[in-house]
């Protein structure tokens, strides 16, 4: 008998992460191949209301750890919750979205259970009955294919790489409480400051409009923001403009910023340095708008526009607004 997949579902302040639901959807697809159960773990305080949203991805069971120790995140407290769920369910795999919470939490629990972990997985394959996890390495310049030889293994999945299952009606998931009292919490979150302005989270956005030095100055973010608003996109940036203080590091895409793989990435006045490409080259469609036909970004784009961002971007915003209104 197979042992199933456990998925850690991230919520912050009562908000579910879309990327967690993508991980849950992929768990469902993998588990169906072997007729295995999928169990979702949700931890927090007063989070039961999130269960129907989770049920849409058809887990067999939702385990809920719900008490005041989990109001805010702590690595050790959440590690205790995840460990307890694993001990209870005895899964083969533990999946999670590759978010900052997961990067903090998942490897800690993997080490506690003496188990291997592959992070930032962009694809799951099967070969000769073995599961293979594909992990982009060297900033996406190579793909590592990994195989496990352990009774339990952990994986965190890159967002926008695994399609979401959205069943119309909530699957009649079994909901079960799991009582966990963290024992030894020596560091915990005391406050969260939400960044102003960014409506769509960069690493999860389906569309990103990014600006580089070619936009000339911070006063011109407004121009890109208008395109973002029309497309429902998140605003990204190159390191050059982050270093210049035009925008917060939160927005930086690339080697030392965020890795993103949206459906559409529009690079405005970005040269396409290797460290920038590192963060966005796995985007499905890449548009480059740059006035220098020799800019390296043109070698990596799906559609290239040689032109001045100040002329092209406002017109593009207008055209998109018209098209989307139709």
């Amino acid at each position: 008998m197979s042992r199933g997949i456990l998925v850690f579902i991230e919520q912050r302040d009562g908000q579910l992460r879309r990327a967690s639901l993508e991980a849950l959807s992929e768990a469902r697809r993998q588990a169906d191949k072997a007729a295995e159960p999928v169990v979702a773990l949700l931890a927090g305080e007063s989070v039961k209301g999130l269960v129907p949203g989770i049920a849409k991805c058809r887990p067999d069971k939702v385990l809920v750890v719900d008490n005041h120790s989990f109001t805010k995140y702590s690595t050790e407290g959440y590690a205790d919750a995840l460990t307890a769920a694993i001990k209870k369910e005895d899964p083969r795999y533990v999946l999670s979205a590759n978010t900052s919470m997961a990067r903090d939490l998942i490897p800690r629990v993997a080490a506690r259970l003496d188990s291997p972990c592959v992070s930032d997985v962009s694809e799951l394959r099967e070969r000769n009955g073995a599961l293979q996890a594909v992990h982009p390495m060297y900033s996406g310049k190579a793909l590592g294919v990994f195989e496990f030889s352990a009774p339990l293994a952990f994986m965190t999945l890159r967002s926008n790489c695994f399609p979401l299952i959205e069943a119309k009606e909530g699957h009649p998931a079994q909901v079960e409480d799991l009582a966990v009292t963290p024992e030894n919490v020596r560091a915990w979150v005391v406050e969260t400051h939400t960044a102003a302005g960014q409506k769509v989270e960069l690493s999860e956005a389906a569309i990103i409009v990014s600006g580089g030095r070619g936009i000339k100055g911070p006063e011109n973010w407004l121009m890109l923001q208008q395109l973002c608003d029309v497309l429902g996109a998140a605003l990204g940036a190159s390191r050059a403009v982050v270093d210049a203080g035009w925008i917060d590091h939160q927005h930086q895409v690339g080697q030392t910023g965020k890795t993103v793989s949206p459906q559409l990435y529009i690079a405005c006045g970005i040269s396409g340095a290797i460290q920038h490409l590192a963060g966005m080259s796995s985007s499905k469609v890449i548009v480059a708008i740059n006035n220098n036909p020799e800019a390296p970004i043109f070698k990596h784009c799906t559609y290239g526009v040689v032109g001045d961002v100040f002329q092209v971007v406002p017109k593009l915003t207008e055209e998109c607004r018209k098209l989307l209104a139709e």
Binding site: S115, L143, G144, V145, F148, A153, A288
Partner: peptide
């Protein structure tokens, strides 16, 4: 408990338009 069985280059992007 885990090993890399293969390292490959990502498929090249088709020539852009």
């Amino acid at each position: 408990k885990v090993r890399c069985v293969e390292l490959t280059l990502p498929p090249p992007r088709p020539q852009g338009k």
